[in-house]
Simulated scan of single mutants.
Amino acid sequence: MRQNPSFAMTDVAEIRRVIDAHPWVTIVSGTDAGLVASHYAVLLDPARDDLTIVGHVGRPDDLIHGLGESELLVVVQGPHGYISPGWYGDGPAVPTWNFVSVHLRGIPEILTPSENLDVLERLVDRFESGMAQPRPMWQAPNDEDFVRKLERGTVGFRLTPTHVTAKRKLSQNRPAEVVDTIIERLDAGDSPYADPRLADEMRRARDTMRAARS
């Protein structure tokens, strides 16, 4: 991902927030057979306060990616959406696409079976927590044999990235009044491109810039 200083995200807490809010990622590896990509959910490592993530892949994706043997890229996609030139005012303009994205690169560490099992359990707990009646991984009718078989069919990993590129392209190069108008349009819900989540990201970037200037 090409970086632009005007759009760079460098605050670790902000990058962690994006990863935590958007755990469904794309994992890309370069192999002898060419590029391969898979999609899995990840979590921030609770034992760390950096950008280390933990997750798993299903077998045989570990072999396809050469997991643990070579560098891979994890792409975290935050809110994104179309920005109409009609939201810029009366001057000449073309459309663009606003987005927040994080790229994490490094060689992952393979987890032990017990560590992998812990990650699987925490993944289930994370997403079941929003349900009216959460169903943890160990809850019946799941039994120990079922859960252990599940673990054996996956390979857990921990990735402490050696290279991070984080970018939020959120109209920071536009005048303040234009940014405010775009946020209003994204919040309004009167177009097919309305997206309150993207509007929230734009507010965060706008307020950060205004605080820095003051």
Rank of each mutant, 00 (worst) to 15 (best):
R2I: 11
M9E: 14
R16S: 11
P23A: 03
W24H: 11
I27Y: 01
D32V: 12
G34Y: 06
Y40D: 12
V42F: 03
L44F: 06
I53D: 05
G55K: 08
H56P: 03
V57C: 09
G58L: 07
G58S: 11
G58E: 13
D61N: 14
L63Y: 03
E69C: 01
S70A: 15
S70N: 13
Q77P: 05
P79R: 09
S84C: 02
G89V: 06
V94W: 01
P95Q: 07
N98S: 03
V100L: 07
G106L: 01
P108C: 15
P108D: 14
E109F: 00
I110G: 08
T112H: 05
D118P: 14
S129G: 08
M131I: 03
Q133C: 02
R135Y: 09
W138V: 05
D145S: 12
K149F: 01
H163N: 12
T165N: 06
A166L: 04
K167Y: 03
K167T: 15
R168D: 14
K169T: 09
L170G: 07
N173V: 09
P175H: 08
D180S: 13
D180L: 10
T181I: 00
I183V: 11
R185E: 15
G189M: 11
S191T: 15
D200T: 12
D207F: 02
R210P: 01
